[in-house]
Computed example of a mutant assay.
Amino acid sequence: MGGTVPAGEYRLRVIQDSPALPGTLRWAVWLLAGEAVAVALVAAYLVYEDLTGTANDMVVALMVTAFAIAGAVLLFVLARALSNRRAGARGPVIVLQLMLLPIGYYMIQGGLAWAGIPIIAIAVAVGALLVTPSSTKALGLG
């Protein structure tokens, strides 16, 4: 039997794990994954409503559902990228968190403070966790 490694010459390649994520980055990833799960649940509800409810405009209903599904996927992808220390994911995540602030504000104004306040709190927390020195260093940006 012929092989690519000559007899007697075996080399062991050691793969070292990178150091653990700092707590701030780990929390940001977990909160972002939580946001993704929440948006996925909203998307699942929208799919259910599309299948069982009556819509005035089915095209609009399907577009809203597709937007929710795309948002959930994007949040999952960005959470995964941050957990893999991809520095390029930090900017889009911060932009998404800033976009959640007016959503939470208008939910509060519309009488849904029970949903608006946590949305604002989580958005601020994720943004703050991502700009801490330990997260910045772990992403190789500082």
Rank of each mutant, 00 (worst) to 15 (best):
I15L: 07
Q16I: 01
S18R: 12
P19L: 04
L21T: 05
L21P: 04
T24V: 04
L25P: 08
L25A: 11
L25G: 09
W27C: 10
W30L: 15
L32C: 09
A33L: 14
A33R: 14
A33I: 04
A33P: 02
E35V: 13
A36N: 08
A36M: 10
A36D: 09
V37L: 15
V37T: 11
V39L: 13
V39D: 04
A40I: 04
L41I: 09
V42W: 03
V42T: 10
A43R: 01
A43L: 07
A44H: 01
A44N: 02
Y45W: 13
Y45H: 10
Y45M: 13
Y48M: 13
E49I: 06
L51V: 14
T52G: 03
G53N: 14
A55Y: 08
A55V: 06
D57S: 06
V59E: 10
V64Q: 04
T65C: 10
T65H: 01
A66R: 03
A66F: 06
A68I: 00
I69K: 00
A70K: 05
A70P: 02
G71Q: 08
G71E: 04
A72C: 06
V73G: 05
L74Y: 02
V77Q: 09
V77P: 00
R80E: 10
L82M: 11
S83A: 15
S83P: 02
N84H: 13
R86L: 10
G88L: 12
A89M: 07
A89D: 05
R90Q: 14
R90Y: 07
R90V: 10
G91D: 11
G91N: 11
V93L: 10
V93T: 15
I94H: 03
I94R: 14
V95N: 04
V95G: 03
L96M: 15
Q97W: 07
L100M: 12
L101N: 03
P102I: 06
P102G: 05
I103F: 08
G104W: 01
G104L: 03
G104Q: 03
G104I: 03
Y105H: 02
M107H: 06
I108Y: 06
I108H: 07
Q109A: 11
Q109N: 09
Q109M: 11
Q109V: 10
G110C: 11
G110L: 09
G111I: 14
L112E: 11
A113D: 13
W114L: 15
G116T: 09
P118L: 13
P118R: 12
I122C: 11
I122E: 05
V124K: 02
A125P: 03
V126S: 03
V126L: 09
V126E: 04
V126I: 15
G127Q: 06
G127W: 05
L129Y: 02
L130A: 04
L130G: 02
T132Q: 06
